[in-house]
Nucleic acid binder design. Sequence first.
DNA 1: TTTT
DNA 2: TTTT
Lengths: 151, 151, 151, 151
Amino acid sequence: MLNVVAIVGRLAFDPQMRQTTTGKSVATFRIACDRGRKDARGQMLTDWLDVVAWERLGEFVCQYFQKGQMIAVTGRLQSRSYQDRNGNNRTAVEIVANSLDFVGSKAAANTQQGAGYAAPVQRPADTNEPKLTGEGDDDFAVIEDDGDLPF
Amino acid sequence: MLNVVAIVGRLAFDPQMRQTTTGKSVATFRIACDRGRKDARGQMLTDWLDVVAWERLGEFVCQYFQKGQMIAVTGRLQSRSYQDRNGNNRTAVEIVANSLDFVGSKAAANTQQGAGYAAPVQRPADTNEPKLTGEGDDDFAVIEDDGDLPF
Amino acid sequence: MLNVVAIVGRLAFDPQMRQTTTGKSVATFRIACDRGRKDARGQMLTDWLDVVAWERLGEFVCQYFQKGQMIAVTGRLQSRSYQDRNGNNRTAVEIVANSLDFVGSKAAANTQQGAGYAAPVQRPADTNEPKLTGEGDDDFAVIEDDGDLPF
Amino acid sequence: MLNVVAIVGRLAFDPQMRQTTTGKSVATFRIACDRGRKDARGQMLTDWLDVVAWERLGEFVCQYFQKGQMIAVTGRLQSRSYQDRNGNNRTAVEIVANSLDFVGSKAAANTQQGAGYAAPVQRPADTNEPKLTGEGDDDFAVIEDDGDLPF
DNA sequence: TTTT
DNA sequence: TTTT
């Protein structure tokens, strides 16, 4: 199976952080994604999409993003069943974030990182993966130096 | 803005075709997308996602797919507001299909097309685009023959 | 089969427009996509990706985008075989654009469209598809008004 | 920035595993992705795409996949510079895998997992992320039970 | 309920 | 260089 989503939009509200009973942190936010065309009444058509960001991803979005800012989200679609206040079964569809990133340089500058671009933030477990240790590409270069290309 | 979804899953029901009052046809179907892991009770976790397929895409899915079959869907996420039977405002999030395709060979064989593989079906307006006329790649080859590569 | 790409990056050069021998126009451009982290020497790691935009999409990118501007691209990956000037067989991998859009507001303002946001541009044949005629959503609303939701 | 790819195709060769000098394992494989239409000579048009899978993802693909089998890949596009045997600078574009999964049930059955479906395999660091511990959804359910929905 |  |  395969389930991938990529969205760029603006935060409709400030992100909200919560804690689960088992101690995990999770942030939720909503993004407005304009379709780039208007309806018959001249109003911009917009899709409103909910995003769930766990742990380090959630901390990142709460620290650097607020209402109105543009954000790039990748992740997967999730459906979730719940009962509304009247006891009716409802289904919510939301995006579980896999990576979050700034879009445009202004917001990125807010992070006060040297490059002007904030590092893309991925799921917590990514921290000991090659690309975040800074040695992944060098490793790969070694393969190349051997005249021993991967393909 | 950017809004892209790619999903592979199984049809939860046979697709349903409708007509709009202005004469457009639209098919809707639901796909089950297993997450590949089970919950605490040993039940496979599944995301249920609704898909909207307009016109030629809708006709295609109704003709070749039924409940239980695997399908590959690309498209965009759409939120849609409506009132439920109690007059409450609700929001539905669904995928508006941009392309549909078979996954695995059995279903593809059902189309009885010479190639054994059905052509991926894209939105109606794609018909006079290079890739469906069969000349797009040749054109591009001409560029190459000139030693005049695009990049 | 399924083949989807979504990228946000900056144009490395001004887009270049060409004509095929059969009269189709095709623009090519390269985008720089920062990985958000630096190599061991402190240099930002960047992926350089080539994009092919046919007909109306190509005209759009040439009209509104130049070197350095940010762009959102969706499309599919394509491999293409050619011979280099020494007669060696080479393979190029590039993105065939399916939609192009502005990212951030400055570029969007350049289009001098009333809304401040340029419409996302999709492949030519999309013009008689619901979403560009401006009636698609209304049609769908009709379905809703019937209390006859698609799902 | 944003960089996402989702592909379904068949392995052109058996995957190949290598070790970097720093001890990381990396598998590479090529997938054939049919475009679903033929060229002027009646030959199926196919895109050939290279994939890089690090560590646990690489071990997974080597264990469960061989030439000819279908695979679902998500990841990001990477460009990589190298010198060919003549000392010319070349650029390769490949997919760095983020998740790998079976497509269709037959291959999945090979893994001899109870469900008949193999778990999707994601990057190593994901192991202590909610969704692989099996408690993520329960946690989320707790939020719901509180009548305290995320949105 | 976001932005230009 | 893959498959039906």
